[in-house]
Design a binder for these strands. Structure first.
Lengths: 214, 214
DNA sequence: CGCATGCTTGAGACGGATCAAGTAGTGTGG
DNA sequence: CCACACTACTTGATCCGTCTCAAGCATGCG
């Protein structure tokens, strides 16, 4: 931990509050920051998807969330990031320096309000995940996950899953095998159909909703 | 759901921002508000403990958190509470009306900052819970829980557990039986000692920390 | 084209849930 | 203040579902 933050915007001009500077590019699977790093930047997802995760000393992982376009990442606690962030696929982000963020907080009275609402939304989502992890069965977990991704993407039937089965497992507190078996099960019941590993079509949304049990 | 909010401060004088009005008293096990209710108040815990929980249509429950003195409860999303709140034991709360809260937001520029930091802390705690629920074993869960309560209470060895084993189970995503067996196990290993059902003494904190696996 | 990585499927083990019974606490009314 | 009843907790036996281990198959990249 520490000193692992990705290099930011070589050009030297600090990102402005409005995100004037060119977004930085992070290749797939690369780490953007680690839990425990000093929080030098606030990031905003421009394109692609990031995974937010925590790791135990022995290597067990839980992905606490996937970050889609518009997500604000790297809000710190006592100046320290409290989770890890990786790019799932090649990713593009706006990076705002600490100074720029603080300046914006001073100048733009609505910005804090926005940060607050964003964090509050994340808290509500985190509580949904707590319910999912603590009480749901694998079928309910996977069904809830597919519905969730559908909302993130704002698409109707076609769900794109850029992450691996292993990532999905780490997000749902299952193993890869169980996730795979559950997908097979949903496919056999004609609830979903999959063209390839990363694209799923929802055939029966009411049934998927029913299976997700809320 | 809806229309279940506890009657607030009969005296008629709206709670002021500073909490001038006498705190309201809620008897043990009573519900203060339900998920889906219109958020008319912001509550602050004065004494005793509340349980924040979510429920599935079929009755499965997860307690997303316990609220100790100082906790701010009832921050809404789109004017609606997104969790249920019950008193664990006889409880005393300050209730701030929506109008009072909005007035304070206008007059006190630090208040929003405070709300934001509070919510951010809760988010960090929620992510810890997500790790716990998704990856930890029962022993790790119970050990983590005991350490957590110890911090909430700011005591060293003596841990007071006002909630039932069933509540603890609903908090850790386990059954009452498993929680009970795990307590017995920790007792047999001389990690803890219990005088009665609600009080536990930590005999070996390093070992408890080790068992909590982080 | 071949190798590496990711996904699927199967067989078996194991841990936590469930079912069941008994014990200890707690509160209430006589 | 005690007796009784109800609720909470503990412990045991068994069952079931998910993990683990293992092998084969698809996919994509060099």
């Amino acid at each position: 931990m520490g000193a692992s933050e990705n290099k930011v915007d070589q050009s030297g001009n600090t990102a402005r509050a409005e995100g004037v500077s060119r977004p930085i590019q992070v290749p797939a699977k690369e780490t953007i920051f680690l839990e425990g790093d000093a929080a030098h930047h606030l990031y905003e997802v421009v394109a692609s998807v990031g995974k937010i995760y925590k790791m135990m000393p022995d290597g067990r992982v839980i992905i606490t969330g996937f970050a889609y376009r518009g997500a604000l990442l790297g809000i710190a606690r006592a100046g320290i990031y409290f989770y890890n962030l990786d790019a799932v696929t090649d990713m593009s982000l706006n990076a705002y320096s600490k100074a720029a963020t603080e300046a914006r907080l001073r100048e733009d009275p609505d910005f804090l309000q926005h940060l607050f609402e964003d964090t509050n939304d994340e808290l509500a989502q985190a509580q949904e995940r707590i319910l999912l992890l603590g009480q749901k069965t694998p079928v309910e977990k996977v069904s809830s996950f597919l519905r969730r991704v559908r909302v993130w993407q704002r698409e109707d039937q076609q769900v794109h899953l850029p992450m691996t089965r292993h990532d999905i497992a780490d997000y749902l507190g299952l193993t890869t095998e169980t996730v795979s078996r559950t997908f097979t099960q949903l496919r056999d019941q004609n609830v979903i159909r999959s063209m390839n590993q990363h694209d799923v079509e929802i055939l029966d949304l009411p049934q998927l909703t029913h299976l997700s049990e809320n």
